[in-house]
Every structure is written in structure tokens, then in C-alpha cells.
């Protein structure tokens, strides 16, 4: 019976771990999204330095959680996100008016990474 109790406890621990992971992923993507929101507002004011600074903050937040993201997210998803960060940065530096499309793509990648952890019929099946 002890073995069954240990297995039950381990299963509960895994479920708790999954919920905790969901929370961590949500918090991380939310903070990165906030920084991206600030970058968008600055870029709309044509304050490209401010936009780049906010983007830098978002990238620092993301890179700061590298150990976590590499442990829990798939590498192709992370690569896509990293490329989107880099593309947006380049367009903002060039003050290219095409930056909103790059920002949308970055948000899409961020949303994809976050959504992969959420329980829904779509992600399960």
C-alpha cells in the first residue's frame, strides 16, 4: 500500500507542478507583453529610442528566464520568438514603418508559447 500512496502523492505533485508551471509561464509572458505594450506606445509616438529601450527590457525579462524556458518550451518555438525579437529591434532601429507587423508576429509567438501550456481542447487534441 505504501507504493500506491507514494505513486498517488507523486501524481498529485506532478499535477501541482503543472499548475505551478502554468502560473509561471503566464506571469512571464504577461510581463514581457507589458514591456512590448510600452514599446508599442513609444513607437506610436515616434519615440524609437524609448521603444527600443522597452523592447530591450522585454528581451532581458525573456532571457532572464532562459533556464526555465529551455527546460519547458520546445526549441523551435523559442527560436521563433528570438527571431521575432531580433526582427522588431532591427525595424525600430531603422525607424521602419513596417514595425507593427513585426510586433504582431512577436506577440503571436509569445502567445503560442504561452498557449501551449494552457489546457484546452485545441491544445490537448
Amino acid at each position: 500500500m505504501r507504493r500506491e500512496l507514494c505513486a498517488g502523492a507523486l501524481l498529485l505533485l506532478l499535477i501541482a507542478g503543472a499548475v505551478w508551471n502554468l502560473h509561471i509561464a503566464d506571469r512571464l509572458t504577461e510581463r514581457v507583453s507589458d514591456s512590448l505594450g510600452r514599446a508599442e506606445q513609444a513607437a506610436r509616438r515616434e519615440d524609437y529610442d524609448g521603444a527600443l529601450q522597452a523592447l530591450e527590457e522585454a528581451l532581458e525579462l525573456w532571457d532572464g528566464a532562459k533556464t526555465y524556458t529551455q527546460m519547458f518550451f520546445r526549441q523551435p518555438d523559442l527560436d521563433g520568438l528570438q527571431d521575432a525579437f531580433s526582427d522588431l529591434g532591427q525595424l525600430l532601429r531603422q525607424e521602419d514603418p513596417a514595425w507593427p507587423a513585426a510586433l504582431d508576429l512577436l506577440r503571436y509567438h509569445l502567445d503560442m508559447v504561452d498557449r501551449m501550456e494552457h489546457l484546452s481542447l485545441g491544445t490537448i487534441f
Partner: peptide, 8 residues
């Protein structure tokens, strides 16, 4: 875990 629980 499932296998141990089901077997038990």
C-alpha cells in the same frame, strides 16, 4: 504512477 495505482 497510474500503473502502480491501478495495480494496487
Amino acid at each position: 504512477c497510474c500503473e502502480v495505482l491501478i495495480a494496487g
